[in-house]
Nucleic acid binder design. Structure first.
Lengths: 208, 208
DNA sequence: ATTACTAGGTTCCGAGTAA
DNA sequence: TTTACTCGGAACCTAGTAA
C-alpha cells in the first residue's frame, strides 16, 4: 500500500485524517522521516493539504490528489468492468448441480441475498478465461458454506447478472481452484426451458 | 502511471501484451533498462509472466498480480462509492441492552472475534429499511448463542464498522424477526458519552 | 510530545555495451 | 534488431537530533 492509498482509506476523498507521521510510518513499514518528507512533497505537488497541530498532522486531499485517485480508479474500473457482456457456450453441467443448488442452506441465502430461490440446476457456460475478468471486481454476494446432514457445503461468491433480460446470478464456488474457464449460472427459473437452450448454444451474460 | 497500470490497460487482466521494453519506456518516460529490470523484478515476485520472443517481450498478469490490482480497485471503489455509509437517528434503546451485552458468554466472543470487550449498552439507530442492504453482504462475524444460568441467549451476527472513526460493530440478533429498521451498535467505549449523543441525533455508520 | 533538517548509507537509475 | 549486464552517479532512505 502506498501513502496516498493509506490516506484515501483513512480520510476518504473529502474527509480529514488526524494522526502522527510515526503512526503512518509504522503501518507502511517505513520510517517517520520518510513519511514526513513524502507528505511535504505531496503538499508541494498540490496533492494534499497538510496541517501541523501540536499533537501531530491533519491531512486531507486537495483537488489534484482527488483527480489522481480518480484517474487510477477509472483505469482499474475499465480493466475490471470493461466490455460488459460475457459470452460463452452452453456445456453439460456437472450433473450434481441440482443437488447442490437445492440445499436448504443455500436456498435460504439465495432468497435473502440474491432475492430469489434458485431453480434446482445450474447452467454451465464455457468461456474464454480472459472473459472472467469482467466478473471479478463486481459487487460480490457472499453465500456462506454450511454443514449438511452428511457432508459440508462450501461457500459461494455470487455476482448478480442478466441473461436475455432474465435476472440470474453467476456462482463461483470458493473452494475450487477457480478453473476460470467455466461459469455456473443460477436463476429463479429453468433457463434451458425458458430460452430453449441446447448444449453448444452461444449465450451472453451481463454482470450488473 | 506505473508499469503495472500500463500493463493492465494494454493487456487487461487475462490478456497478453506483445511489445518491446523500449516502447514501454518511451511511454512511461523512463529508460529501456529500467523497464527491463522492473519486469524481471515483477516476474520474480510472481506478479507477471514474461516471455522473451525474438522481437520483444510478451507480458501477462499472474495470479498475484491480478490480486494486487483487485485490491487496489476495491480500495478505490469504496473510496469513490462513498463508503456506503448508513445514516440513521439515535433512538432510546430497549433498556435491556446493557444486560445482554455484558453477558460473559457474549463478551468472550466479542473480544476474540471483534477485538474488543463491549461497553455494556447498545446504541440504537433508527434507519431506513433500504439502508440495511449496505450492511448485509459485508463480512459477517458470527457470535454464538449460549445457555446462561436462568435463560438462554441467542446468536448474533455482527459486522465491523466505524462510527466517527471509532471502531464499533453492528449487532443483529439472529432470532428477532429482524424488524429491519433498527440497528444495534456495540463498541469498546460509551458512544453516547464519547460523542455526546442525544436521542434524535443523526449518526453515520460505515460498515467495513 | 511532535515534525523535519542534516548527513551518511543504501538503493535505484540509465548510458554504454555484451549477448 | 532485441534484452539485460556493468558501473558510476543520482535519488532515496533513515539514524541522529534540532526545533
Amino acid at each position: 500500500m502506498t501513502l496516498l492509498e493509506y490516506l484515501a482509506e483513512k480520510a476518504g476523498l473529502y474527509g480529514s485524517l488526524e494522526t502522527r507521521t510515526s503512526e503512518i510510518a509504522e503501518f507502511l513499514k517505513t520510517s517517520q522521516q520518510t513519511v514526513s518528507r513524502k507528505l511535504i512533497e505531496f503538499e508541494k505537488q498540490g496533492l494534499i493539504v497538510r496541517e501541523i497541530t501540536g499533537r501531530g498532522v491533519t491531512l486531507r486531499f486537495a483537488d489534484a490528489g482527488r483527480k489522481l485517485l480518480e484517474g487510477k480508479f477509472q483505469l482499474l474500473s475499465s480493466v475490471f468492468k470493461g466490455g460488459a457482456a460475457v459470452s460463452g457456450k452452453l456445456t453439460t453441467g456437472l450433473g450434481e448441480g441440482a443437488y447442490y443448488v437445492d440445499q436448504e442452506g443455500y436456498q435460504k441465502q439465495f432468497l435473502s441475498k440474491l432475492g430469489f430461490k434458485a431453480y434446482p440446476g445450474t447452467l454451465n457456460l464455457s468461456i474464454e478465461e480472459s472473459e472472467f475478468a469482467k466478473v471479478i471486481g463486481r459487487e460480490k454476494v457472499i453465500i456462506e458454506g454450511f454443514d449438511g446432514k452428511e457432508r459440508s457445503f462450501g461457500g459461494l461468491t455470487c455476482y448478480k447478472a442478466l441473461l436475455n433480460k432474465q435476472e440470474v446470478a453467476i456462482a463461483v464456488p470458493d473452494r475450487t481452484a477457480h478453473s476460470g474457464d467455466t461459469l455456473e449460472i443460477i436463476a429463479p427459473v429453468n433457463l434451458r426451458k425458458k430460452f430453449t437452450l441446447s448444449d453448444g448454444d452461444g449465450v451472453e451474460v451481463n454482470p450488473l
